[in-house]
Amino acid sequence: MTTESLLEEAVQLIGDKAGGQSVPEPGRIDLTVEPARLLECVSALKDAQWGYLSAITGLDLGPQDGHLEALYHFCQKAAVLTLRVSLPRDGAVIPSICGLIPSATLFERELMEMFGIVCEGTPDPHRLFLSDDWPAGVYPLRKDFIVPIPAPRPEKGTAE
C-alpha cells in the first residue's frame, strides 16, 4: 500500500468527523478535530487498526493567539496522520484517550503538566516528570514561562 492510499484510507475513516484537513508536507495529513469528537476519531482508527499512536505533541501558540493545540500523531509505515485539537488557553480540557489506547497515559500526563491541558478521565493524573517541588499551576512549555537565568557569578579575582 502506498503512503497516499494509506492516508486516503484514514481520511475515509474519520474525514467526516473532522472539521478540516490540510497537507503540511508529503506523507502527512492533518485533520482538525473538535475536542468533543476526538474519542470518535481515535476509536475509528483503533477499530480499523490504522497505525499506532506515535506521540502527542503539545503546542502553545502564545498568549496573543490565546490557543493551545494538542496534536495526536498516528503513524503507519511512512504515513503520519495528525489529529489537531485546538483548545482555549484558559480552561483547556480534552477527553482522555486512555480508555481506547491505555499506553497513551504517559503522553497525556506529559501534556497535562507541561501545558496545563486537562485530560479528563485519564487514569493517573499524577505529575509525570516535573519534580515534586515544582510550583502548581506553572506550565514550563507554555510560551509565557520564561526560563529563569541565574545571575552570573563574579569571576575569580574581580570580586572586592
Binding site: 486512555c98 500526563r109 487514569p123 493517573d124 493524573p125 499524577h126 505529575r127 509525570l128 515534586d132
Partner: peptide, 25 residues
Amino acid sequence: TVIVRREGRDGSAAPSESDSRKDSS
C-alpha cells in the same frame, strides 16, 4: 518522569491505594 501503576495484565489502572507519596501534583 514516568509513573505507571498497573494491577494485572488487563490494563485496569490501579487507584493508588498503595501510594503513600504526597500528592503534590
